[in-house]
Design a protein around this nucleic acid. Structure first.
Lengths: 158, 158
DNA sequence: TTGACTTGGTTGCCATGGCATATATCTTAG
DNA sequence: CTAAGATATATGCCATGGCAACCAAGTCAA
């Protein structure tokens, strides 16, 4: 029981495998629904929601939030701009960067997509999360996330 | 509190966000360690471990396990074969498919990588999972995974 | 002020995965 | 047995992300 005892009673490799499998399948399922109803995928929905809730963010802020590279964040912003869902505005305080904000179209889209997102997520997870373990697990994931972010774990290079 | 009550006391969108952020950062961090020490990434480690533990699996079995498309699984197998970590053997019962198995090199690699994997994962998560919430959360994710797999949620097309 | 360093972002190249298509094999109704 | 359909995989095209090279702009010390 060497493996189990390292995690204080939890089989960490099994925990990780379950975490990844849940994430993959939920992400895929949400992609399907969001694509068919709104023409976007989950990563775009999350970017739009972040920009709605944090207007004036920079490309680097998107990268940090989602733990993706700066390059990927920049390209993602390009795509949102190309669809006229977001735009870059010159940052008056630092001309190297731009401040991102949603357009009216983008705002309407994210609000509509959020309904689909929440509905689908509820459909897929509410039964399992309904019991008393739900909030405990949610709290633990929030703590794990906070720890990883505090220690800057798993940030890509570029 | 409409959102929270749908999940029986859990904010499902927040739960999902935390789940995805944890998965991304852990995956990235494990990628770094595995790449520098063994020249593989986490997805390859997981494939190798699966083949070690389920010898004679088919490409379709890999796809189902990881909720990726058949095409992606086929290409992944190609890459493992190219490195001589695995090989395809003709399936005597069905000549459309091959049975995959590790080579001796592949077996040595996965065993070595597993030590790095477990060690890194422990380093990153053991502190958070140590408390009483750890097993509760692990159990909940296992149940969620089982539900998603039972209902075939989030399987790609090809 | 200026030159070295840092920081924010963009872009090109490569690897990987999704999806559609193409093949080769099974399976099965008749 | 045969033809139609189902199944397992392979492969091509496209989208996306990592990483590195590059450029523009800010910071700082002397």
């Amino acid at each position: 029981m060497a493996t189990k005892s390292s995690g204080g009673g939890t089989d960490l490799p099994a925990f990780f495998a379950d975490l990844v499998r849940c994430e993959t399948r939920l992400y895929n399922a949400l992609n399907d629904r969001l694509r068919e109803r709104h023409g976007i995928v989950t990563s775009q929905f999350e970017s739009l929601r972040f920009l709605r809730d944090h207007p004036g963010s920079r490309v680097a802020d998107l990268a940090a939030e989602f733990a993706i590279g700066i390059g990927a964040a920049s390209k993602g912003a390009d795509r949102l701009e190309k669809q006229a869902w977001a735009r870059r505005r010159t940052n008056p305080a630092d001309r190297r960067s731009s401040l991102l904000e949603l357009t009216d179209d983008g705002l309407r889209l994210v609000d509509a997509a959020e309904a689909t997102f929440t509905e689908t997520l509820t459909e897929l997870t509410a039964a399992t999360l309904r019991g008393p373990a739900g909030p405990v697990a949610a709290q633990l994931l929030a703590e794990l996330r906070a720890t990883l972010e505090r220690d800057r774990i798993g940030l890509p290079t570029g």
